[in-house]
């Protein structure tokens, strides 16, 4: 049995999966979808046919996402570019730290009374390396648009 509400929910999930994550944007698209379904039901089309036709008319989620991605301009674009640069630099620093750690542990490992110091140094350096690499990865994901915690324009939208 066709359920319009369930189908709209499913359509929203497809949009989310394609990367359209802004609740404001999703709401605007859903309102449009409902308007179109309503318009088609009036002349006698059934709910399922109207839903399928409206979904087709609104466009493929991946194509929409590509278009919305172009909306990111100016400061938001610079923000993402900066994140990419800082992210790559931080990952490099993390990897360098890990490399140093490997070299140091080999050198200090040769000293007979350095065992305790070696363990502490190793742990501290390991935590630092992981933190740096992790932060860098988060920044790179942000720059690629996979995650957004500073959604510039989107944050502005939420206050509309």
């Amino acid at each position: 049995m066709f359920s319009l509400e369930q189908s709209i929910l499913g359509w929203r999930k497809q949009m989310l999966a394609a990367g359209i994550k802004s609740p404001v944007l999703l709401e605007e698209l859903e309102i449009h979808l409902r308007d179109e379904i309503e318009r088609q039901i009036k002349p006698g089309m059934n709910e399922q046919e109207s839903f399928n036709s409206a979904v087709q008319k609104i466009g493929r989620p991946s194509a929409l996402q590509r278009e919305f991605q172009k909306t990111i301009t100016g400061p938001a674009k610079i923000n993402r570019m900066m994140s990419l640069v800082v992210g790559i630099a931080t990952i490099s620093a993390g990897l360098f730290q890990l490399w140093e750690l490997a070299v140091q542990s080999r050198c200090l490992g040769g000293l007979p009374n350095a065992e305790g110091r070696l363990v502490i140094m190793f742990l501290l350096a390991f935590i630092l390396a992981l933190t740096l690499a992790g932060s860098g990865a988060i920044l790179v994901f942000y720059a690629a648009g996979k995650i957004s915690w500073l959604p510039d324009a989107r944050r502005k939208e939420k206050h509309v």
Binding site: L25, H32, I58, G59, L64, F68, K70, T71
Partner: peptide
Amino acid sequence: TDGMLYPV
């Protein structure tokens, strides 16, 4: 395409 209006 209806949805394409919104990015514009």
